[in-house]
């Protein structure tokens, strides 16, 4: 092989980069779904599946509706009840601890929502420095 040393070195770098996820996790404990602090109240605003996938869009819509159009209630598709649109007074009433609820998944997925730029967290605001 011509310039074999350089080609093999290049290939070694290639393999090292593209197998990164495989060797980086060696020795780490298996990934577990983050355990969230569950509230006493059984029903959330919507179903668990919906909240898991769509809570961020719901919150975004709530903000726009409340701030821009002054719509103050939301009708739940799950229970049919009218729910007050408020992060602090609705969401955080059942999930008051940011550290034990919101940030568990957000940290695991490297998501940094800007809710807390304006809103305060009743408990578990270890991220506020």
């Amino acid at each position: 092989m011509y310039d074999g040393g350089k080609i093999l070195a290049g290939l070694a770098i290639f393999v090292l980069i593209f197998t990164f996820p495989f060797w980086y996790n060696i020795g780490n404990a298996a990934y577990q779904r983050p355990k969230l602090e569950k509230p006493k109240e059984k029903n959330c605003v919507e179903s668990v599946e919906f909240m898991r996938a769509d809570h961020m869009q719901l919150l975004n819509e709530w903000r726009d509706e409340y701030v821009r159009e002054h719509i103050t209630t939301y009708k739940s598709h799950l229970t049919g009840k009218k729910i007050r649109i408020s992060l602090t007074k609705t969401c955080l009433k059942c999930h008051p601890n940011r550290d034990k609820f919101c940030d568990k998944c957000h940290a695991s997925l490297a998501v940094s929502p800007y809710c807390w730029d304006c809103h305060v967290t009743p408990k578990g605001d270890s991220n506020e420095k």
């Binding site: 996820p21 495989f22 996790n25 780490n28 298996a30 990934y31 779904r33 983050p34 599946e49 898991r52 996938a53 769509d54 869009q57 998944c105 695991s108 997925l109």
Partner: peptide, 19 residues
């Protein structure tokens, strides 16, 4: 077409940790 992102991470982590 939203889905459970934490579940996705369980799959991807399982794949790279060979479990």
């Amino acid at each position: 077409v939203k889905t459970d992102v934490v579940g996705i991470k369980q799959i991807t982590m399982g794949l790279v940790m060979l479990k």
